[in-house]
């Protein structure tokens, strides 16, 4: 079942100026309920522009955005509702922490939705659990936390609004391997346990490979691929031509393929890689 549908949207920056850019060119795409979708593309491909349309931060120059079948631009009220239905977590969200305690920061979104104190507390608790934030941190100032913890608090703040669709712009950027893994686990758990759709932007193909059900690739304002992660990464050469890179393991297998090793091209997981190499050695032994 689809939850969010983008129909023939075009978006123009700087209309009527010499800097006019068509950032999105007649794009149509459907996001299914409960899926974990990665959006990739190099800087300037239109990723952020597309995502900002999904909760009404930008209004399409032409075309429509439908949430559960209804045009989000139908009325003032529906646009406001779209902001709650589709939660948006910006890049480096920890820069936007501002409250005096972690608890208050996570509660900020739900409070804006006009929920009861009781419901707010419940949601803060839930989001804290997802984010793996120790409850002893709740009364601390967010500024006393480590970089990885701050990032998780900021994400928890958006999750606490229980959006039907959660958008994350580069959720793991700038984190160390440990912080990165914690954020990946957090996103996975949230997706599985709430059944909410998650759309995230990443430049890290290994993160994409380990998280995404489906991958959407944008280039110059147009969709070039929208397929399962396996199918997308099996087209490694095309990805390289878009200057996007492939997961490290896929790169290794592509290089081995060029040297004449008979290996599958759709491998991006290290365990799968091991299995494929073991099977290759067995085949060689039989020859």
């Amino acid at each position: 079942m689809s939850i969010l549908e983008v129909k023939n949207i075009t978006y123009v920056y700087g209309e009527g100026t010499p800097f006019r850019i068509e950032a999105l060119k007649n794009i149509s795409v459907t996001f299914e309920k409960g899926e974990l979708i990665a959006v990739i593309g190099h800087t300037g491909s239109g990723k952020s522009t597309l995502l900002m349309h999904l909760n009404g931060l930008l209004k399409p120059t032409a075309g429509k955005v439908l949430y559960e079948g209804k045009d989000i631009w139908e009325s003032k009220k529906s646009v406001k509702q779209a902001r709650f239905n589709v939660g948006y977590c910006f890049q480096y969200p920890e820069h936007q922490l501002f409250e005096s305690s972690v608890q208050r920061d996570i509660a900020f979104g739900p409070r804006n939705m006009g929920l009861s104190e009781e419901e707010i507390n419940l949601r803060v608790q839930e989001a804290t659990q997802f984010a793996g934030i120790d409850s002893s941190l709740l009364q601390k100032s967010p500024f006393e936390l480590s970089g990885g913890e701050k990032r998780r608090v900021a994400i928890a703040g958006v999750m606490a609004m229980k959006p039907g669709v959660l958008i994350l712009d580069e959720p793991t950027a700038g984190l160390d391997p440990k912080g990165k893994n914690a954020v990946i686990e957090l996103i996975k758990n949230y997706n599985i346990q709430t059944g909410s759709t998650v759309i995230f932007v990443s430049h890290n193909m290994d993160d994409v490979a380990s998280l995404a059900d489906r991958v959407l690739i944008l280039s110059e304002g147009q969709i070039v691929m929208y397929d399962t992660a396996k199918n997308v990464f099996s087209r490694g050469k095309q990805l390289a031509s878009l200057a996007l890179g492939v997961p490290e393991i896929t790169q290794l297998f592509l290089s081995m393929g060029e040297r004449g090793f008979d290996l599958p091209v759709d491998i991006f997981d290290i365990e799968e890689a091991k299995a494929a190499l073991l099977s290759l050695l067995r085949r060689q032994a039989h020859d």
Binding site: D176, P177, K178, D206, E248, I249, L252, I270, E271, A273, K274, L277, L278, L281
Partner: peptide, 20 residues
């Protein structure tokens, strides 16, 4: 210390456990 090792080495270590 919360750090990774390079992917090619990780794969080699996995294979080593399988006797390769």
């Amino acid at each position: 210390m919360g750090l990774d090792v390079p992917k090619p080495l990780q794969l080699a270590l996995l294979l080593k456990k399988e006797g390769i």
